[in-house]
């Protein structure tokens, strides 16, 4: 029964089987992998706002505005805000006042309606992520967002998967970019313990000579991780499930 023809058939079938499995595996693994579906996500924004122009380095023709000028509360709260229209109008009240590209910004300012920016980075709602903890550990924005100051339109640079978070929490030395001046992150003495919002009442601001409020990690000897002083001992992030899921 086993003729030359069946032999050929079996060989052919085997080759096809391998090919089909390979193709299905590749489409399945890469096609629906987060890398493909998330990294490089670059939605078109309602206003053609350019980080390259506003935040870009002055040697590159940018204005060199620090990230913290617009994304103000990244160092004190979990959420790093996209700036309100009034921030744009600080300058655009007198600059490019006729530009058609800024029409939406002016409308939004006059009518008091927020601009609907399209969101780029998004974790699932069951993950607890806190900007302030990372910024106060003097981790630069570019460790997680790529070089935003070189992007004309913001796109997602990192995967934002659980594995990615944990990689850095286990081996921070390999993944942390130390705070750069361009980000405007506070790296002065005892930066980690400072709480600018404490007692924010006019007339009676807390008389501080020392940043004595908030959590006090300062007694731990500062260790150098990739050249930056880390407030927590070896500067590791948490790995227990309840730190990120609750």
């Amino acid at each position: 029964m086993y003729t030359k023809a069946t032999d050929k058939l079996i060989k052919k079938a085997a080759i096809w089987l391998v090919a089909v499995i390979a193709v299905v595996f590749h489409i399945g693994y890469f096609g629906f992998h987060n890398r493909v579906t998330d990294v490089g996500y670059r939605p078109t924004q309602p206003v053609p706002f350019s980080h390259k122009l506003h935040a870009g380095d002055t040697t590159n023709g940018g204005l060199g505005i620090k990230c913290m000028y617009c994304h103000t509360t990244a160092e004190v709260s979990a959420h790093s805000p996209v700036p309100p229209t009034s921030t744009c109008m600080n300058c655009h009240i007198a600059i490019k006042t006729e530009s058609p590209r800024l029409q939406l910004v002016r409308d939004s300012y006059e009518k008091n309606i927020p601009i609907e920016w399209r969101r780029v980075h998004k974790l699932p709602d069951y993950v607890n992520f806190d900007h302030s903890r990372h910024i106060r550990a003097m981790i630069d924005c570019s460790s997680c967002h790529g070089k935003v100051e070189e992007m004309g339109v913001v796109s997602q640079a990192k995967m934002l998967t659980m594995g990615w978070c944990l990689d850095c929490h286990r081996n921070p030395e390999q993944f942390i970019v130390p705070a750069r001046p361009i980000s405007g992150i506070f790296t002065g003495v005892k930066a980690a313990a400072y709480q600018p919002n404490a007692k924010a009442e006019l007339g009676t601001p807390a008389p501080i000579t020392e940043p004595s409020f908030g959590y006090v990690p300062t007694d731990v000897p500062k260790q150098e991780v990739a050249g930056i002083p880390m407030p927590k001992k070896p500067g590791h992030g948490p790995e227990n499930c309840s730190a990120c899921h609750y």
Partner: peptide, 13 residues
């Protein structure tokens, strides 16, 4: 697919 060459897309993930 490995993400070394940026592959930009306007459609949500």
């Amino acid at each position: 697919f490995g993400g070394e060459i940026p592959w930009f897309s306007d459609t949500p993930p």
